[in-house]
Design a protein around this nucleic acid. Structure first.
Lengths: 209, 209
DNA sequence: ATAATTCTGTTGAATAATTCACAACGTATG
DNA sequence: CATACGTTGTGAATTATTCAACAGAATTAT
């Protein structure tokens, strides 16, 4: 009933990207509406949890009909601010960084990589339409209003994080294998194969006890 | 007090990799012991939560002294089965796959990539000491006892997942942007920049309401 | 139209996770 | 060896999350 997005539980917030991804896929398949029960089968989350999660964003479904997929996607964009215009910077233009610049196909999804930075002078060339600047020039080249950085460089990690925070970065997607600390108010998401594998191994072993 | 790892809460299981990573870093810095309060500052998790989490693995700390870092790391390895010998396969030898084969430095951490598979005949060459086989040969080439697969290929994703499950894969680290469904008993971990960015954007916006 | 059906939104109960508070124990000190 | 101190491990209390059950709104069928 509330019209803003205050007080959305953390657990719910973490499920939104899952819904959004599934919805985009369903739309691509030509579907126009979906029931919470059907969506449940796709994302393996109980339908009642889905309905509750969505209810935080407004009264979106219709009884006896379900949800309009387009409407849901729109609401995610409007209310949660994924308005395609997020400016993202990339730190590190190595193998992984290149892969990310390459599938810069999150155009129309969250935003796009505005520019990249690297310490290696050999890597300072435009790649897949993304300019690569020297790491030294971070403070002057960083786009106005940029909040999100993707960190793939693995030297001087902690120092780099501190510089990013000083530049006003509010969220860091961290691909490094280091453990790093962030100042208050900065959010970090690990995107780490090793940790992911560990979690899988832990959970797989648990299941066999 | 329990000597096995039964009934470890899911939330706890997800924090273990965080602890492990921080502990390895502290060890590298030459530290030998740590208090739950100190560790708390590093990982931003309340010390009381840390103590409870660790207590599921046995009685590891000493009152008035803290925890031995070496001992903790050993316990994670022993009790949770990260015994360095996990055989991992990689599906897709493109940019991202190459990056993963390159920092195959999870030797001594979880295991190693035994081999990779790709549909593209041009990519079927040994890369960073990892052999790359044709996708067709998955069923015959997959190592015995292999439980974990890393999925970076982005064509025929769902079909590939089904084949992996049929081969006995129990955990999939998923780098694709697709939404995929897994059969009962198979665990999946998304390692997705886009979803990570979305979560960051969602949470960053939340904080400013 | 009207009635039957379907599926949402939400209440309240059950379960899970976190945090508090402190007794018990190991260490350090004299 | 005894005493003081500091930190763990853990019941009990609190908070967060999930889940079941159902009233009621919108659709569909007649």
């Amino acid at each position: 009933m509330s019209n803003n997005t205050r007080n959305v539980p953390k657990a719910t917030l973490q499920r939104y990207p899952v819904y959004l991804k599934a919805l985009r896929q369903l739309k691509k398949q030509g579907l126009e509406r979906i029931l919470s029960d059907e969506l449940s089968k796709h994302v393996q989350i109980k339908s009642t949890t889905i309905r509750r999660d969505l209810s935080f964003l407004g009264t979106l479904g219709k009884q006896g009909y379900g949800y309009s997929i387009d409407k849901l996607i729109d609401v995610f964009n409007e209310k949660l601010g994924t308005e395609f215009d997020e400016k993202i910077i990339l730190i590190g233009a190595g193998n992984l960084g290149s892969a990310l610049m390459h599938y810069n196909r999150w155009n129309y999804v969250v935003g796009e990589i505005s520019c990249a930075f690297d310490v290696d002078p050999n890597k300072l060339q435009m790649k897949y339409d993304v300019p690569v600047y020297p790491m030294d020039e971070l403070e002057e080249r960083i786009p106005k209003g940029c909040r999100i950085a993707i960190l793939t460089a693995s030297s001087n990690v902690q120092k780099t994080v501190d510089r990013l925070a000083a530049c006003g970065i509010k969220g860091i997607v961290d691909f490094t294998h280091e453990h790093i600390q962030v100042p208050e108010g900065v959010n970090i998401k690990q995107v780490d194969v090793v940790s992911a594998i560990q979690e899988l191994v832990f959970e797989t072993n648990e299941m066999n006890v």
